[in-house]
Simulated scan of single mutants.
Amino acid sequence: MAIASGVDLESRLAVARDASRRLKDAIAQVIVGQSEVVEQTLWGILAGGHVLLEGAPGLGKTLLVRTIASCLDLRFSRIQFTPDLMPSDVTGTNILVSAPDGSRHFSLHKGPIFGQVILADEINRATPKTQSALLEAMQEHACTIAGVRHVMEQPFFVLATENPIEMEGTYPLPEAQLDRFLLKVMVPSPTEDEMTEILVRTTGHALESPSRVLTREEILDLRSLCRDVAVAEPVMRYASRLVRATDPQERGAPDITRRALRYGAGVRGAQSLVLGAKAVALLEGRAHVAFADVQRVALPVLRHRLIRSFEGEADGITTDQVVSAVIEAIPTRPASVDEAIKR
């Protein structure tokens, strides 16, 4: 059932909470464990952003994206990135077509980027030129071919995967493209119980694909409702302080920021922090964002937006460690407020 705009907010939130529960249940029929990965991926979908999934081979990254696509009534496209993939293989191209009357004209042959759920598999295997073919689509939700701008049908989101182990023959994503991903989700190895369940499910007869759970209209309604989730000014300012604390040039930045980072997160990082926190609140059926929601999304939102310095790399300090230290160092209430209260 779609979320009608005319009903009260509490009813809309109840419908959204039920829709997210049904979606999670459908995904769990195929994906074993990985509850945090599924949850964080849904944050990106509800917030209207793109998600980068990083993990070792065989952890189910591609299967997760395919399963999500099966649960959503949207057009699914898979792009297998390889070193010889050309930009036109992603966007499409104009081809010369002969009409029955003998005349000829150019017709647009659309590429896989014109889907709605885009699986960019092993995205770091393509050359920078091909990777850049995604930039306009990811940021503008449009694609320009031969000077003509084509708008993507909504909803549109890219779920990309990359393998951190095999580095030969890969091209690390440039910062400009990394910044366009709302979240970077780390996919962990399964536990013993999860591994056993995976073996039970995958070494017998093939499982049926999950049924459609959400329609296009329901997804758009959920995205609209996510934008309606309220954020109080103190929470908004807290998100701003967190992002500013990742800048090594910022006065009051933690020592680990100044020592381990060359560049911090920017405006897109702050926007993603708020949107991700709104998605967390929506999935839990709340109409307001809490400080804890911002803290919860900080790692997947900021980890890929921080650039380490030479010293940070030499000392083996990860961006996750920096984000965790920033959360510990930055209070939810600024020092000026505490001083005013004491007076």
Results as ranks from 00 to 15, higher is better:
Y171K: 04
G204C: 08
F157N: 07
A146F: 00
E194D: 04
I118Y: 09
M167G: 11
A126P: 02
P188M: 04
E194G: 00
R125A: 12
N124G: 11
A120K: 11
L183T: 02
D193W: 00
V187Y: 11
N124E: 15
M186G: 08
A120M: 02
R216N: 05
Q139M: 01
Y171C: 06
D193E: 15
S209W: 09
D179S: 13
T215Q: 07
I118C: 06
E197L: 10
M195I: 01
E153A: 10
L178V: 05
V200C: 12
V200I: 09
T144K: 06
A120N: 06
L182T: 04
D193H: 05
Y171W: 09
M195T: 06
E140S: 02
T191Y: 02
Q177C: 00
E192T: 00
E122M: 05
V148M: 02
K129H: 11
L199W: 01
Q131M: 10
C143V: 15
T127K: 04
A160D: 13
I123M: 13
N124T: 07
R216L: 13
I198R: 14
G147T: 08
T161G: 09
A146S: 14
E217M: 00
G169N: 02
T170R: 00
P112Y: 09
D193L: 08
G111C: 12
Q177T: 04
R125W: 02
